[in-house]
Design a protein around this nucleic acid. Sequence first.
DNA 1: CGATGCATAGGTAAAATTACCTAAGTAGTT
DNA 2: AACTACTTAGGTAATTTTACCTATGCATCG
Lengths: 203, 203
Amino acid sequence: MTVDASQLIYIVDDDADIRSSLLRAMRIRGYEAEGFATAAEFLESYDRDRIACLILDQGMPDMTGLELQKHLTANGYSTPIIFITGHGGIPESVQAMKGGAVDFLEKPFRQSELMDCIHSALSLAQSMHADNRKNRVLQERFSRLTPREREIVEHMISHPSEVSSKEIGRHLNISPRTVDNHRARILEKLDVCSVVELMALTR
Amino acid sequence: MTVDASQLIYIVDDDADIRSSLLRAMRIRGYEAEGFATAAEFLESYDRDRIACLILDQGMPDMTGLELQKHLTANGYSTPIIFITGHGGIPESVQAMKGGAVDFLEKPFRQSELMDCIHSALSLAQSMHADNRKNRVLQERFSRLTPREREIVEHMISHPSEVSSKEIGRHLNISPRTVDNHRARILEKLDVCSVVELMALTR
DNA sequence: CGATGCATAGGTAAAATTACCTAAGTAGTT
DNA sequence: AACTACTTAGGTAATTTTACCTATGCATCG
């Protein structure tokens, strides 16, 4: 199995020795890796659209690992996080895991343990990246609909047993033919050929 | 907000004092609660179909909390678990959270903290209970399909743009009319009125 | 051997969708 | 005042789905 060059490992730790040792270890294995001493530095370089994971020290001055995690999730960034900690406690580890962390390792840890985490973090990042792309395309398509068209789509999705023009027309007090016209535009805008395909779009 | 009498709190801890103090605290708040000294005792009384949560001591002889959690998930039981521990470490807490625990509290903990956990655990149990019921009904319906019928359903689900009898017939090398007949039986067995509804069944 | 279940194929008629059009009223913008 | 977008409504014809049926070949089970 070869390493995908487009994957990136961010390392954020205020300890320069750990940073450089981790960077070396990652690069030896063929990964692209970048190191940062503070959360602020990291945020300057952070690219939310890369397939990446984050190795994050919990015990940092200024902004702790947990605070950075909170900041990232609050902004809708979903890059998987692996915490490493020198002298953290159970409450911190639990909060990190609740916040969606991939793992929470105590220093010192075995390198193989970290590599396992990185591997699952990156494959998680990959699938989330694909999901995000799909959702963005979908959202873009739905944004093209007019209010009335959106209303009709929502009715079809929430009432799958009443998708005929007659029934929708009755529900909205308009002619079935009008619904026909709306539907034609809806299918065109959403780039599907049938109502069945439309339903499939929403998984 | 009143407490739903059909909800149940299981307490598993080898320390009799903690057990009785927790039981008392739960019952004062109107919850139904049962205490057990060992995992084995708990498993004898455990009813997977109740809306319940489990307060589980990690450090027990015989079978630890983590082992019990693993056993429950291996058997497909989804009752939410709140861990409590006397002298556990970060690795245990992380493993518990990875295994889907609601929380992992160190003794001693504030009672309000535990009550918050119980509240979210029980609402989680409630929604999972509803999901399970839905899925069981759905599975039961799909089990009534013959192999050929299932094949056609799967084709429709995975190829939403080719649901016409013509296309399915071409794909399976059979007459479109045959597909018509199969489809009629499929819709009848799945208790839906249209292919659109069928797609909606799979969310 | 008969019964049952499954897969196959077809007939017919009603209903719905789809693909083409036209067209008018209303609201907001330039 | 002209333009644009949105909503409304309809015509016609081809295609599809749906709801009723019948019927044959095959395998399995009692």
